[in-house]
Amino acid sequence: MRRALKGFGSYEAGLLGLLVLLMIGFGLADPAFLSLGAQLDLSGPLWESLLLAVPMTLIVVTGAIDLSVGAAVSLCAVCFGLMFQSTGSVLTSGMVSLGVGVLVGTVNGLLVSLINIHSLVVTLATMALGFGIAEGASRGQPFSGFGPTLNPVAKWAVVFAFGAAVWTAVWTRRSVTGQSLYVIGLNETAAEYSGYPVKRSKVALFVVQGLMAGLVAVIYAARRGSVKSDIGQGLELDVVTAVVLGGTSVFGGRGSVWGTVLGALLVHEVRQFASWHWERNELIPLLIGGLLLISVTAGRVIDGIKTPQ
């Protein structure tokens, strides 16, 4: 336990305090929101965004970013749906979904590390490409009727999410490879000359991010019983906000998985409360966008504005 909690610093403690305060505030405004039943009912999206936010943390730690996560989830979900339509097998469709995710990640990773285009340009383009193909291939139609075979996957989501978070938290602290990601983020050129496998690490991270997108698409299908090409729309904003709010520097080299877990929790609770209590979904982008702006500015202040880019 102590090993797992290493890296839970003062920033994370502050974030936890903020989360507790927020929950007290929400509880005072609407006690029913705090009940265990309500929280469990609403918790589905949290596991999905956690599964995406954990690898995103590592990508941002190396100084890159992946804006295509939402699009990857949409594309995987549509491929899952199309495959299910033609084969009727949940297992095959699930494999296809994971495979498509890995493919998206590979394309991103290779373009970023081999051709050396900045990740935000690459993933902005693959984001459009992914959403476009998802929309085009499905013609905006939803897929459903996956049957009861898929149901257990939704229950396992929480295990996947916790497993990924705990394992990654220990791995980044304890293993040489995990620590090398921070070195890459601090100074990529220096890391390369010191013999760190910079390119391989980056490709691997993008591939893992893609794989997680494929997994999340399957979990979503299991949880909601239907998928559509717009399910990943705006997901990248939630995930990036969770990571940045969790104290990971957008310039790379600093960040922790525990911070991201707390960030994801904060984003999740704010989102759920907005639609639960105020019943105004149009407030959600406003709140989350605002959270991202505030946290990125706060991170900059912590880093010191004078530090050269």
Binding site: L120, L237, V240, V250, G289, G290, T297, I305
Partner: peptide, 26 residues
């Protein structure tokens, strides 16, 4: 935000995009 705080413009404008989308709908 980009010039004075030296933040990456993609993050700033991505956040701004969400804020404005919500504001427009409201």
């Amino acid at each position: 935000l980009v010039a004075l705080m030296r933040l990456p413009s993609i993050i700033v404008t991505l956040a701004m995009m969400a804020v404005l989308k919500g504001a427009g709908q409201i």
